[in-house]
Design a binder for these strands. Structure first.
Length: 464
RNA sequence: GGCGAGAUAGCAAAAUGGUUAUGCAGCGGAUUGCAAAUCCGCCUAUCCCAGUUCGAUUCUGGGUCUCGCCUCCA
């Protein structure tokens, strides 16, 4: 039985889908005005892992991850760049897809863009207004009346009183309550026509929170199973989504809320404002994308994940051990697909128990290492095949081992042919017992990051 | 200030009311021409103080420290 930590309950709960064997999942995606950083990588990889595990568990999953392509920062950036909103967002959507593909992140079933669902949002705002939960303020904005929604604060555990008492809540005269948030922003003179839509409340554009409520309902229904995102979205974004969706539809919205932890740098949250972020493409210049994916999955998704080169190096070494085991043992030919996994075998059972326990990937990975040990010891083709299939449910170890071990950053000094020439020269030297020469060649290669490994079946190489 | 999460060996990171986490690093052995890889064995832990208990790293209370949210944030 799969258990999921539900932020709403602050506890692990048995996962029971609304419709048997079916899972409908929505994850808050990116605001596309810049390149994705490692924090975004974590959300994508974590929920890709969830998506894969749900499918491996036999569920028919519909996964939606939205794209926010209209918002203040986008408008500002486009103006700075003197380019259209559409050109800007399309550029960074393409970049995001490149990054996601590199990290082995499967495309969600739907990637709705906010700008394509404005009518649905307007519809929803109208419902909220009809239900007495929205009002048009003096400045022309349509706001959500937080005080009118009874359950406000149930996700984040905050009470309206506490929030109001907080020093950082701004007082805005146009709002009935400082915590009221914008559903529809009135059009501003200085903004491009491209960001203005007609509505019964006048020209304008949607507030941020309404897009997720509207697109979730459109693509998954008013009531669905899982909603995910970074822990920083818990409040106010997800709290507001609940207020909007339940307020408009007058029914339950999401059963399980999942929030992943941050990527930190020196124990501080990686963020744009602190300037301590690393973009995915920047990191991928130094590290293999699968190493980055492995680095993310080696920690539990709710724990903080500290980023540093030392940790990436460590992840690389660990992943190398797994691929080395696969390299040494031929796989028993098996068609892909989890239907062939015998979950009763000890390693598979341990792996499954770990994954079913709130997606405990560190424990699942530990099972993989134990399996690698067995593979190395027994040279069992079946064990190697099991290892690869289990890892596949995490999106790992699917490449040819040699590609992984020999790939990566080449310093350009030697190509494969050059390396093989050196290896042949060393074999010749060894045959004449000229070990000094053989060692010299090996040392020379090591100097350019090539490690030679002799075995009964010959000499192979990998990059350090 | 309000609310929440967490403190595990040199580093990273799980789990557990008593019994091996796991990876990297380190040490010893096997193997190797020597290495590397691999195998076998070993070493280094549970922030502090009380309490519950036959027994607590695990539960309870207090403390210290760290981080996050309360403003855009994945």
């Amino acid at each position: 039985m799969l258990k999921i930590y539900n932020t709403l309950a602050r506890d692990k709960q048995d996962f029971i889908p609304i419709t048997p064997n079916t899972v409908r999942m929505y994850v808050c995606g990116m605001t596309v005005y810049d390149y994705c950083h490692l924090g975004h990588a974590r959300v994508m990889v974590v929920f890709d892992m969830v998506y894969r595990w749900l499918k491996a568990s036999g569920y028919d999953v519909t996964y939606v991850r939205n794209i926010t392509d209209i918002d203040d920062k986008i408008i500002k950036r486009a103006a700075q760049n003197k380019e259209s909103i559409h050109a800007l967002t399309q550029r960074f959507i393409d970049a995001m897809h490149e990054d996601a593909d590199a990290l082995g992140v499967q495309r969600p079933d739907h990637e709705p863009r906010a700008t394509q669902y404005v009518p649905q949002m307007l519809d929803m705002i109208a419902k909220l207004e009809a239900n007495g939960l929205a009002y048009r303020a003096a400045d022309g904005d349509v706001n959500y009346a937080v005080r009118k929604f009874e359950g406000y604060g149930k996700l984040s555990g905050k009470s309206l009183e506490d929030l109001r008492a907080g020093e950082r809540v701004e007082v805005a005269e146009n709002k009935h309550d400082p915590l009221d948030f914008v559903l529809w922003k009135h059009a501003r003179e200085d903004e491009a026509e491209e960001v203005k839509w007609n509505s019964k409340w006048g020209r304008g554009r949607p507030g941020w929170h309404i897009e997720c409520s509207a697109m979730g309902a459109e693509l998954l229904g008013k009531h669905f199973d899982i909603h995910g995102g970074g822990a920083d979205l818990q409040f106010p974004h997800h709290e507001n989504e609940i207020a909007q969706s339940e307020g408009a539809h007058q029914c339950g919205f999401v059963n399980y809320w999942m929030h992943n932890g941050f990527v930190n740098v020196d124990k501080e949250k990686m963020s744009k404002s602190l300037g301590n972020f690393f973009t995915i493409r920047e990191v991928l210049k130094k590290y293999d994308a699968e190493v980055v994916r492995f680095f993310i999955l080696r920690a539990h998704y709710r724990s903080p994940l500290n980023y540093s080169d030392a940790h990436l190096d460590d992840a690389k070494g660990a992943l190398t051990r797994l691929y080395t085991a696969l390299k040494a043992t031929p796989l028993r030919p098996l068609a892909a697909g989890t239907a062939l996994i015998d979950w009763s075998t000890p390693h598979a059972a341990r792996f499954k128990a770990a994954m079913d326990d709130d997606f405990n990937t560190p424990e699942a990975v530990a099972a993989l290492f134990d399996l690698a040990n067995e593979v190395n010891r027994s040279q069992s083709a079946a064990a190697a095949a099991l290892m690869k299939i289990l890892a596949g449910t995490l999106g790992l170890l699917q490449r040819d081992p040699s590609e992984f071990l020999q790939g990566g950053a080449s310093d350009g000094v030697l190509d494969d042919a050059g390396i093989n020439t050196q290896i042949q020269a060393r074999i010749a030297a060894k045959q004449t017992k000229n070990f000094a020469e053989a060692d010299r060649i090996r040392k020379e290669l090591l100097g350019v990051g090539i490690v030679l490994e002799d075995s009964a079946s010959g000499t192979t190489w990998r990059r350090a």
